[in-house]
Simulated scan of single mutants.
Amino acid sequence: MVDGEPSLTVLGELVVDLLPDPGGDAGPHGTAPRYVAAPGGNALNVAVAAARLGAPVTLLARLGTGPLAAPLRRHAEQSGVDVGRFVAATEPVSLAVVGLGDDGSAEYGFHVAGAADWQWTDDELAAALPGTTAILHVGSISAWTPPGCEAIARLVERVSGTLLVSVDPNIRPMLAEGPVGASLGNDADAVRRRLQRLMLHADVVKVSTEDFAWLHPGADPDLGTSVWAERGPALVLMTDGGRPLRVARPGRPLLKREIPQVPVVDTVGAGDSLAAGLFAGLLRRGVATRAALAELTDDELVAVVDEAALVAALNCTRAVADPPTRAELDARRDLRPGR
């Protein structure tokens, strides 16, 4: 039972993204490219985007050490995120070096060994979850990297059926398998098992076609979205870059929704912004339980999904993860599909 105004709680990692400065000088020998440090990570991006849209949001994160920790906290606070339940960690902050393709797509190199984000304990999580939580969002690296992923899975199992649980696999293959993954205690089979454990209790799953292809090599995305929805979640959203979103619910036909076409600066934080737009839209419509989500008509759900897609699109028009405010979103409703 929710104690107070239904809210969103986001659980996951805080990451500093080092992004190339397109106007920066690489030095006389071209060997000193300039980078800009920007707050990032799935959890931080989702929380910030939802808060900017006016949703009540608490971020559960382990704030690591070092000079880059304070800006991460400040970024969340300035967007209206409740950071009062941050855990002061002794391990370092996670770092990602980002490369951008000509189309704005992002490629990541990670420096995360021994980082704070993977060290959650049962005691830390037992004390962290606010009583107002109606939607709990988990996912990305912290949800499938030990030892903390085990504590996160136990939390999800404990609250399953009492609130809406959202899972986003957000696979980073470099960290999920291979030598770097092995150094973190990850391999492909183990990551798939950990995610399956979470998705058994998920009410909402947001997944990209890239993630789906990694989880189910060679499988058809249309069929896969519908099959996933029949296996437990009340809603599955599959993103596919600039192509239509797939929307699946149990016992209903697969829906596809065009996404707004915008000039893309980069795609950093696009999927996170879409998830945040979904959560903010559900809470604004009073959808705080699985039963209420299941009762939404297709037209009502499409309205929420289309708005979430617009949030993601507007994020892509600006550098780094920089999602729109509610006012900025309202000002660009002309970009929604069908208009």
Rank of each mutant, 00 (worst) to 15 (best):
L255M: 14
D220H: 12
D189P: 06
P253N: 08
A280M: 03
V205P: 02
D222Y: 09
E210D: 12
V227W: 02
L283P: 06
L255E: 15
G286M: 09
R192G: 09
D222F: 04
Q261R: 15
T209E: 15
D203H: 01
R192A: 12
G242A: 15
W214A: 06
D220Y: 11
Q196S: 14
A276E: 03
L237H: 02
M199N: 03
T267M: 02
G251Q: 05
L274R: 00
R249L: 07
T267F: 01
G242F: 11
V268F: 03
T209M: 05
V204E: 04
A188Q: 12
P263K: 13
G218L: 09
R243S: 15
R243V: 04
P253T: 04
V264R: 07
D211G: 07
F212E: 00
A275E: 10
L278K: 00
F212N: 00
V264A: 09
G277Y: 04
R284A: 15
A190I: 03
A288K: 01
V191Y: 03
A276T: 01
A202P: 06
D266Q: 09
G224T: 10
R193W: 11
T225V: 10
V204F: 05
P260T: 10
G271L: 00
Q261A: 15
N186Q: 08
D203W: 03
D240H: 02
K206N: 12
E230H: 00
K256F: 13
G218C: 13
L198W: 07
G241T: 11
R246W: 10
A288Q: 04
V227Q: 11
D266C: 04
T267S: 11
F212T: 06
D222L: 02
S208F: 01
R252C: 11
G271T: 00
G218V: 07
V207M: 10
L198I: 11
V262G: 11
D220I: 11
V207N: 02
L215R: 03
D220P: 13
R243M: 10
L283H: 05
T225Y: 00
R194L: 05
V205A: 09
P233A: 09
S226I: 00
P253S: 10
L215A: 03
V262I: 14
P263Y: 10
A288S: 15
K206V: 12
D240T: 02
L200I: 10
V236F: 02
S226C: 04
A248E: 10
R243P: 07
A248C: 08
L237V: 13
V268T: 14
F212Q: 04
W214I: 04
I259D: 05
V191C: 11
I259C: 09
R252N: 13
G232M: 05
G277N: 05
P250F: 05
L200C: 13
